[in-house]
Design a binder for these strands. Structure first.
Lengths: 167, 167
DNA sequence: AATAACTTTCAATTTATTTTGAAAGTTTAA
DNA sequence: TTAAACTTTCAAAATAAATTGAAAGTTATT
């Protein structure tokens, strides 16, 4: 296998895998392309390489910037904008963990807290509902705490600790 | 808020959240319903409560059984099949982690290993590609190892250790 | 062995998501 | 200030995914 083929494989694998962290195909592919590109790319470059429309490229680049994993860079002497991605996988995971917590986990925790607080009328239905939604709330809360530790400064010690424990 | 309202809220929240672990709305809603139900439900019950068709119920129940988080139970004296879900959130997370590793992480790791092994022709393109895909491979591998520890027997000590570290 | 009770399958339909492309908007350079 | 270079927006079109419902399949009962 040579570079071109490997690159295509990476981009398409990443594309279909986008669902793993809740983004669409084009978005994941743009990210993949930038992730392995040694220098920033213009929108033109991206459109061409991935064979997607201008509108598609524009919207998904914006989406990636909202996730905080793709950035605009200014290339001196160039009129148009260039884009590059977060290159450090540790920082990338942190950013994704942070965003998923904010977008998905935290709203869910809020709902779970609210609904598990209904009054127990003594019925089997209510008892089971309260018990199960409370258990789910605790789980989500623990998961969120773990994610936050990863996201914040403690990254170093926790990673090291985990690696020690797990290796 | 009373039980009925809370239950509806739980089911719909879980439904829209299904994407978090890669399943569709109906599937997540069936799971939610069974998760808070004190006793097993028939396909009829599920169809009625969620207002979905027989075919939909049938296919998604099968999907949930493939995930290993919903089971058929035999209710004595009843002709039809009844269903129940994994009730323990710890076991539920384990099962989901196990399946996601098998379905998504492992195939990805395989591709990453393969493509990061291309020959370095000395170009900046190739150098960056190899460096970045290798970093991604290492990350995915560490994540997979962590998931496996969770899935297997070590569950207890690692959970306890984490809780101690994180609380 | 026939029938009733129940479940699965799958082509057709509906619904949801993604993509396009061209008009509108913005920025830079002359 | 004008015009060219470039980017964003968004309604319409294309594509993909989920859902239905009825026929086919299966299993249990008499």
């Amino acid at each position: 296998m040579e570079l071109k083929e490997a690159k295509e494989k990476f981009i398409s694998t990443w594309g279909t895998l986008g669902s793993l962290w809740g983004i669409n195909k084009a978005m994941a592919q743009i990210h993949a392309l930038l992730f392995v590109s040694p220098k920033p790319l213009s929108m033109e470059d991206i459109m061409e390489e991935l064979e997607i429309s201008r509108g598609n490229a524009s919207m998904n680049l914006r989406g990636l910037m909202d996730w905080g994993i793709v950035f605009k860079v200014n290339v001196p002497g160039e009129r148009k904008e260039f884009f590059t991605s977060e290159k450090d996988v540790t920082e990338l995971s942190r950013q994704i963990a942070k965003e998923r917590s904010r977008r998905e986990l935290q709203p869910t925790i809020k709902v779970l807290k609210e609904i598990s607080g209904i009054e127990d009328d003594g019925s089997a239905e209510a008892k089971e509902f309260i018990k199960q939604t409370k258990a789910m709330h605790d789980l989500a809360d623990t998961a969120d705490t773990m994610m936050h530790r990863l996201v914040n400064q403690e990254q170093n010690w926790i990673t090291k600790t985990l690696v020690k424990l797990l290796k």
